[in-house]
């Protein structure tokens, strides 16, 4: 067994151990893409956590131009606390006609001090951890600005270098139902393309990335801006009317936040299942190891 001392000093240990044969490794992510990706991770993390804290100030959603405590017919989502017949407090979440007991997670959960706390989202999920609308807003808007500037950098760079057109936008031939179905089956079996087939994104990746980049995140920005009375005036009523009113825009902002969380869960799960080392390394160094070809 080789000891560490046997490694030539000019070569870092990790490179010696994992350096794949030529042809398997290619430069997948340019430095701008990688920097934008990690800034985005930071932004979305803070935006979601501070957004949940903001939401806790009025944990209800409405459809239409307006919505407040008395507008029962417009309220389609709410988180609250109530109590059972015997007086035991419970947390409740209502989506449309369906009310679910969400004690322990939503409405009523253990705070960071271990005591039961009646509020929308639990303290462990919010930034700051304690309910503090003013602080949460301050951080939310800082990261919203960073998120928008970072996102514009990514979009402009991606369009100019054709990264978005060539690598992210779904190819027409990939959209064949047979190909999509094949990709779904392979994913369900946790068999991910490797080797030559892994030198470009397959259709499910492209749909997920393009959907996030071109639909979900732009909707997030537009619905967010729709909640700003100053921006609404500047936009001459285009926002929030595009979404059917400010209360609708706030609802959609919340829904696209849920979709973003769903994307993050699937994205991270795929990274972990398909090989977290080479996936993470490529988003840090840019170099992606396609690995050995899989036998069919």
């Amino acid at each position: 067994m080789a000891s560490v001392a046997d490694t030539p000093p000019s070569q870092p240990l990790a490179d010696t151990v994992v350096a794949p044969p030529p042809g398997r490794v290619y430069y997948r992510h340019r430095v701008v893409t990688r920097i934008c990706h990690w800034i985005n991770v930071l932004c979305i993390g803070f935006l979601i956590a501070s957004g949940l804290n903001i939401f806790n100030a009025h944990p209800a959603l409405y459809w239409g131009q307006y919505g407040a405590n008395n507008d029962d017919a417009r309220r389609w989502f709410e988180i609250g606390a109530s109590s059972k017949a015997d007086g035991t407090p419970i947390g409740m979440t209502r989506v449309g006609p369906v009310t679910v007991n969400t004690t322990g997670i939503l409405g009523l959960a253990k705070g960071t001090d271990g005591q039961q706390l009646a509020q929308g989202f639990p303290e462990w999920a919010t930034f700051p951890t304690n309910r503090d609308l003013a602080t949460a807003r301050r951080w939310h808007f800082f990261f919203a600005w960073l998120f928008i500037l970072n996102g514009l950098t990514y979009l402009i760079y991606g369009l100019v270098t054709r990264h978005l057109q060539d690598d992210v936008w779904p190819r027409l031939k990939q959209l064949a139902p047979a190909n999509i179905w094949h990709d779904i089956v392979e994913h369900a079996k946790l068999k991910f393309p490797r080797g030559e087939n892994d030198k470009e994104y397959h259709i499910l990746q492209r749909l997920a990335y393009a959907g996030t980049v071109f639909v979900i995140l732009p909707l997030m920005v537009l619905t967010g801006l729709s909640m700003s009375p100053g921006f609404d005036a500047a936009a001459h009523g285009f926002l929030p009317q595009l979404f059917g009113g400010r209360s609708s825009a706030r609802s959609i902002h919340f829904i696209v936040m849920d979709l973003t969380i769903a994307f993050i869960i699937v994205h991270v799960a795929m990274v972990v299942l398909s090989g977290p080392i080479h996936q993470l390394r490529s988003m840090i160094t840019g170099w992606y190891d396609t690995g050995k070809e899989r036998r069919p």
């Binding site: 602080t135 301050r138 800082f142 990261f143 700003s228 100053g230 005036a233 500047a234």
Partner: peptide
């Protein structure tokens, strides 16, 4: 950290005054 992130407020104020200085709020 709070003072730093609070700087975003000037960006919001400056931007909204730039793009919609005299703009009217929507009337219903």
């Amino acid at each position: 950290a709070n003072d730093f992130v609070a700087k975003a407020q000037s960006a919001t104020y400056g931007w909204q005054r730039l793009v919609g200085r005299q703009a009217l709020a929507q009337e219903f």
